[in-house]
Amino acid sequence: MRILISIILTIFIGFNIAKADIKVVTTYPYIASIVKEIVKNKATVESLAEGNLDPHFIVPKPSLVVKLRNADLIIINGAGLEIGWLLPLINQASNPKINPSSSGFLDLSQFVNLIQKPETVSRSMGDVHPEGNPHFHLDPYNIPVIADVITNKLCRLDVSNCKFYESNNTDFKERWKKKLKEWNEKLSILKGKKVVGYHKLFDYFIERYNLNLIGTLEPLPGIPPNAKHTENLINIAKSQGLDYIFQDVYHSQKPAKFLAEKTGVRMIILPHDVGSIPEVKDIFGLFDEIVRRLTQ
């Protein structure tokens, strides 16, 4: 028993020699990328989910509990996107700093105008989010808002580095503004173009650049495509016209390819998060790549 206690103590001391940096954990890589722009080397930043997977279905592996165990701040997307996986991890981590009611918990969806908020909800409508569409980070205009919120939170948690965070944020937003101008110019050709997506994933982007979503391959959110629904879509596409088929990186490409074949419209695989494809290394890269793929 004594040996056991001493082993445990050694492990405890060995790994717990206090680190001065605060530790930020984010649910998705895009949030981690924004945080990195703000904290640079003054904090450690880790994402729980990987960018190439369906953000709704992250496996709550015990290894993720380890990341939360000594986190000072958890930043989540919110609006129900983490509903299927995050809470068991927080419960297991037994870290009072990141409980949903604590100061080390930040829900970004609270600070963004959400679209498609349903008046009523029922599970018979599929996997609807009562809070609205949670994929708001795909509107590039929401990114500076998110950066401001994160900076604000970091300033409260780590007062000594606040000035540093604020100047990094200003610098980030300046660079973002320049990029926005470039993207807006390139994307102006998209106005009024008709789109079919797999899931309601790119809706914020579609709304921002005045595209027109005429349907999704999923008959209802979270329900896989079926032949009858796809047939319907083909008819709509043929009668209304269709310009793009947006495909995400994690769903099966079969239904989109089928639609492309039947309508002669190009299927474009779009990254939705940092790390979803190897080319997308940070939040700038995410939109650079989306723009590149849509305009080439």
């Binding site: 445990i8 492990i11 405890f12 790994f15 717990n16 015990p62 290894s63 509990v65 380890v66 165990r69 000594n70 297991q92 981590a93 037994s94």
Partner: peptide, 13 residues
């Protein structure tokens, strides 16, 4: 009573 040990991998007692 459970305890999550401060190890770089998951270890629960």
């Amino acid at each position: 009573l459970t305890w999550l040990a401060p190890t770089p991998f998951y270890l629960m007692f």
